[in-house]
Each structure stands twice: as C-alpha cells, then as structure tokens.
Design a protein around this nucleic acid. Structure first.
Ligand code: FES
Ligand code: FES
Lengths: 153, 153
DNA sequence: ATAATAAAAGACCTAAATATCTTTTATTGA
DNA sequence: TCAATAAAAGATATTTAGGTCTTTTATTAT
C-alpha cells in the first residue's frame, strides 16, 4: 500500500507531535529507538520532511525535531505525496495504463470505491487528529512489545 | 497495492478466460503482445500459476494456455495469495508489528474499513465475473491505445 | 523417427527500495 | 574561541522486485 519510507515518516511525525514541543525537542536516536526504526534510514526520511517544511528541526545541542502549530494541521496525504507520490490513488487496480470511466477495467467500479475512500481518509485526517488519539490513550504508535518473554528472568 | 507480478497475473488470466478455450488455446507471445507485457517475465508468472493449478497449459504445437471450468470460478484473492501473499490485508496501515483491537494504531478503525473492504471484494470476485464484463463489452483488459497519433500519417 | 513448436526451467541481469556508514555544517554552552 | 552536540549531506552497501536470455522438456504433425 504505502512504502516503508512513507509509514516510517507518518509514525515518526505522529510520535514527534505526541512527544515534542519547540521548547523540548526530540532527537532522532530516541525516535528511532522508541519506534524500532533504523536510525540512519529514519534520518534520511526526517531530512526530506524537514526540507518540505512538514516538520521543523534545529541542529546542535538541545536540537532535535518538533512540530509547529501549522505542521500539526498537515494532512496525511501531504506526507504521502512527498514520500511516495499520489499515483497509487489514481492508477488502475489491474495496471491498465490509465484509469477512466471511458476505458474501465472490469474491476474499476468496485475498486474505485475503496481507492477513493482511502484517498479521502488520508486527505481529511491531520497529524493532530492522530496524535490526539495517542494523547487520549485510545491508540498506540509504538509497537506492542514482543519481548515480554524477556521479562521473566 | 498489488505487485506488478500480481496485476500482470490477473490481467493475463482474465485475458485467457476471455480469449481461449481448451480447443483453442492461446500462446504466451500473443498474450504478452495484446497486454503490453514483457514476454519472458509473463512466462515466469504463468508458469507459477500453472504450477498452482490456477490455469492450464499444454506444451508443443497447438499448445498454450486456457482455463477449465473450475479455474474460471477461482477468486481473485487466490491469485493474490499465490503471487503476493495475503499479508497486506492483515497488516497495520502505519506499519506496527501487529494490527489488533487490543493495540490499535490511531488510524486503525478508519483504515480497517477499506482494507477489509478490498479483501472482501477480492474474495468474492471470480475470474469469470470479470471476464464476463469484457464479454459483454462493459469493460476492457487491454490498454487504451496511446499510439493513436501514429495513425495520422 | 524426426523436425518444429511452445511451455518449463534455470541462470543471469538491472533498477529501485531499503539500510548503513562517514563527513560536514549549524548551534550551543563553557 | 573551543569542544561538544545533533542534524544535514553524501557515499556506499544490501535486498528485493522486475526483467531478460538460454537451455530443456513435452507435444504434435510429418
Ligand atoms: S480502469 Fe482499472 S481501476 Fe479504473
Ligand atoms: S493497528 Fe494500525 S491498522 Fe490496525
């Protein structure tokens, strides 16, 4: 569906929204550790997001990442656009070179419903929307710890 | 969404269903040409499908591919399972290591609707269902010719 | 039997996605 | 102004998906 780079990006942004403020930025190592992501790879991704002004970063001591007021209102679709492009929401589900009502594949009518639904979902959901669910304790952005077995030593 | 191998497979099967019978099999070169697919790559794919009994093939002169009665009733999900596996329909949209009601990501409730919808669609649609739409002229499995400009010479 | 045909099988190549490592630049506090 | 910090940037490595080419095997018609 979405590339790894893209879901890494989304999770990192949500984590930053939930855990950082301009006065208390969060570093890349901590983000990577908490989300079980490869540090340097995540670095590349956050770098891209910074360049596109989707997140904010400051170098040096006490530096790190945070989201300003506008960034928290960014929609998921914007992140997807930067990381993967939006083709997936406009392409034919059976790989025809174009998807249209004039030359539809036999799956078109049914497939379009879900493809468009996802597009709408991503277009109407903001980072803040998801971060709020974490804040309220109704959802999680960190992996469920699969190492509970280690705790019985 | 689905890998190229998978959509190539789906299109090829539908094309075979629409264009071949046991008494009039269709060769791989013709399929590849009509669907704008790389011949040898398609060969690999059809080989896999044959091994899984999803399509039928006969070697030698007058040989080629066709679908028997049962094969036409195969559901799309079966093809997807063979080509890509079914993980995509059970994985978290934000890449958490598991997707569950007990440890949901903040997108879970909304995302699940579409992911499950697609799973149901692919599980309830058969090759014959799609081939029929082609037969009836209500849909297409070949690309819309983008070379119409060539026709004005 | 044999030559021609067409898929199966296997080896190999290429490009893109994913991941790691090293160096540079900006910032801060001592 | 210097040392420490942390992100940016760049180079490189690995893995997987996608694609090509060659050889083998099965089938058919002559
Ligand atoms: S033509 Fe296939 S999904 Fe629209
Ligand atoms: S936990 Fe993310 S989709 Fe279910």
């Amino acid at each position: 569906m979405l590339s790894k780079s893209c879901v890494y990006a989304l999770r990192a942004i949500i984590f930053i929204a939930h855990n950082a403020r301009e006065e208390a930025k969060i570093g890349i190592k901590e983000i990577a550790q908490e989300l079980d992501l490869p540090v340097h790879y995540l670095g590349k991704i956050l770098q891209q997001l910074t360049k596109h002004k989707i997140i904010q970063s400051i170098k040096g001591p006490n530096g790190g990442f945070y989201l300003d007021r506008e960034s928290k209102q960014v929609r998921l679709i914007k992140v997807i656009e930067v990381m993967d492009g939006l083709d997936v929401f406009f392409q034919c589900g059976l790989g025809l070179n174009n998807c249209s009502e004039e030359h539809p594949c036999p799956l078109h009518d049914n497939f379009k419903v879900y493809r468009d639904g996802l597009y709408t979902l991503f277009s109407t959901t903001s980072i803040a929307d998801l971060a709020n669910k974490i804040d309220e304790g109704n959802a999680f952005i960190q992996n469920f710890p699969s190492k509970l077995k280690d705790s019985l030593k």
